[in-house]
Nucleic acid binder design. Structure first.
Lengths: 139, 139
DNA sequence: TTTGTTAGTTAGTGTCAACTAACAAATAAT
DNA sequence: ATTATTTGTTAGTTGACACTAACTAACAAA
């Protein structure tokens, strides 16, 4: 199964939710994303089939290595693109709302250029120790 | 009818093709975009119904005011985002391929911030006289 | 004039990603 | 213990956006 935009979103959500609590369940993703219960259920089924997550008897969801890789990549993009836009003067809410969409379509090489530019021109000295800044928004 | 990503692309294509020849027809869009003839035919029908284009008896396509507005907005985004990425070190081909996708999802306010930053930090003095630079790629 | 090509259309299909409605199972409240 | 709520699942639907196959109409060529 190909990793699509929506799968990236769900995996990212699981990662972020997991930072705040140690037991991620489907409802948490429902609350976090605003999608219908059924939509999440179906998406999780696919993520399970594609080996991105595991679900135990208590419906507790964990990312596999494969899933975590995608989630982290997406989350990293989310943060960087969001912070980049903020550095350009975009308000935080809009910046992360846009990041949410941009993160799925920007190419690897463009992202790396964005990253380099950000590190050289915008990065606050302490940021690499606080990569979660602004990350709670709208993932 | 809501303006969707694909409609923006088609209108942009019509605008760009129209810069090079004075009679835009469906075939031209087929060649320009690579989509199937049938797909273009259906898309044009919708664009007609939504008042974005007009088609005369010779199948010649013209943008209405409404259509031209969308096309220009999209094209402007395409050029700026592409050039912005190039300024960041992305190769031209990738930059405009990415611009093609980003142009549909970035918000108005983020785009304007991108634009301001570009004008202040990257814009070559003569660029505003050559806004078509790189614009022929992959619209 | 029959044949072939080009242009446009229509009908039907497929995929992705969301939805609602209805049902089942587990948990909490009374 | 019965009822209500929460959680998860399944079935079926919708909308956007592409596709192929098959058709028509116009035109060119042999």
């Amino acid at each position: 199964m190909k990793i699509r935009a929506s799968a990236e979103d769900y995996l990212e959500a699981i990662l972020v939710i997991g930072k705040g609590k140690n037991n991620v369940r489907a409802v948490d993703i429902v609350k976090h994303t605003g999608y219908a219960r059924a939509s999440i259920s179906i998406a999780l089924k696919q993520l399970k089939e594609s080996g991105c997550i595991e679900v135990d008897n208590n419906h507790s969801i964990t990312l596999t290595d494969k899933g975590a890789q995608v989630a982290k990549r997406t989350y990293r993009r989310h943060l960087l693109i969001g912070n980049f836009l903020i550095a350009l003067g975009v308000d935080e809410k809009t910046a992360f709302a846009d990041a949410c969409k941009l993160e799925h379509v920007i190419s690897e090489s463009s992202f790396e250029c964005l990253n380099s530019y950000y590190q050289q021109n915008f990065a606050p000295a302490n940021e690499k120790n606080h990569p979660q800044a602004g990350g709670g928004i709208n993932l």
